[in-house]
């Protein structure tokens, strides 16, 4: 029974992890850059959710559409002002974009420290535990896991079944090929960063339901997201789904049997193991 409980918890955690990684993945796929500010967007969205709920007493879930729309706009502006000017610089772009997003992360974290302080906060909402067939199911974990997986599912449908999504997916797989189809790659870069930021925002709203957050958590979340993206294969959206689930399951099991200290290093151990044994990532199993 305990194993089944751990699996359920792991899958639900994995659902949130998938969403955590997809924003970073989208930006990496289309723009070819690692957005080091990813975790800071998640954290600020989480802290804002805490502030909003404690001040208005509304359900945090109302914030999901609002944060999505707001972060779409913020992401679009940030991309246009900070990252698009780098796009023409060829290979120098990669290093410069790391510096720019690192700087951006720093600014966001410092601003968050000023607004929200440095203490860890978590939401008291959705703390009910349901008993289903002998399993204890935590309401917050269900909300975060199911919504995380659902929103990732929407991303998948958009990428694979709509003209604009297919254009973005094509750009992420081959920008030159996309241009020959008349796709405006510059516009795709803007869209990818806007949606990447919006997904990071939603991830923050969901994450504060299941994890305590504070401003300095930003770096840990960037790294955790990067680990999931790298595990799945950089820029591979299906791979990130497998990687998120795997990480959730392994963390849930390790946390129970070996304790919280070991659980924290699990992502990095997995990453190192996979880089040695399977550097192409989980998503490329078919080849």
């Amino acid at each position: 029974m305990i194993v089944l409980q751990l699996v359920v918890n792991g899958v639900l955690l994995g659902g949130t992890y998938i969403l955590l990684a997809q924003g970073l993945n989208l930006v990496f796929g289309v723009m070819g850059i690692v957005n080091l500010a990813h975790g800071s967007i998640i954290t600020v969205a989480g802290l804002f959710t805490y502030w909003f709920v404690t001040h208005t007493d509304q359900s945090p879930l109302w914030l999901i559409p609002c944060v999505f729309v707001a972060m779409l706009a913020v992401g679009a502006v940030l991309q246009r002002l900070l990252l698009e000017p780098l796009a023409k610089l060829g290979t120098r772009r990669e290093l410069l974009s790391l510096m720019v997003t690192f700087g951006l992360s720093y600014v966001i974290v410092e601003t968050a420290l000023n607004f929200f302080g440095s203490q860890y906060v978590s939401l008291p909402n959705l703390q009910e535990t349901w008993s289903v067939g002998g399993l204890a199911i935590n309401e917050a974990l269900v909300a975060a896991g199911v919504l995380g997986a659902l929103i990732s599912g929407c991303l998948h449908v958009w990428l694979h079944y709509t003209p604009s999504g297919k254009a973005l997916l094509a750009t992420s797989q081959n920008a030159t090929g996309a241009v020959t189809c008349g796709i405006d790659v510059r516009r795709m870069r803007g869209i990818s960063f806007a949606i990447g930021s919006a997904l990071a925002g939603i991830a923050g709203v969901l994450l504060i339901l299941i994890l305590p957050l504070s401003a300095p958590t930003a770096d840990t979340l960037t790294i955790l997201s990067f680990v999931i993206v790298a595990l799945g294969g950089l820029g591979d959206y299906k791979g990130a789904v497998y990687a998120g689930l795997l990480l959730g399951l392994v963390q849930s099991g390790v946390g129970y049997y070996l304790g919280g200290d070991v659980e924290v290093v699990v992502p990095y151990l997995l990453l190192i193991t996979f880089m040695v044994l399977r550097p192409q990532g989980l998503g490329q199993a078919a080849r």
């Binding site: 297919k166 997916l169 094509a170 081959n174 090929g177």
Partner: peptide
């Protein structure tokens, strides 16, 4: 310069 993980039909659509 194809899209390696997309099917042939998607290339025609694009």
């Amino acid at each position: 310069e194809l899209f390696p993980r997309m099917p042939v039909s998607a290339h025609l659509d694009l």
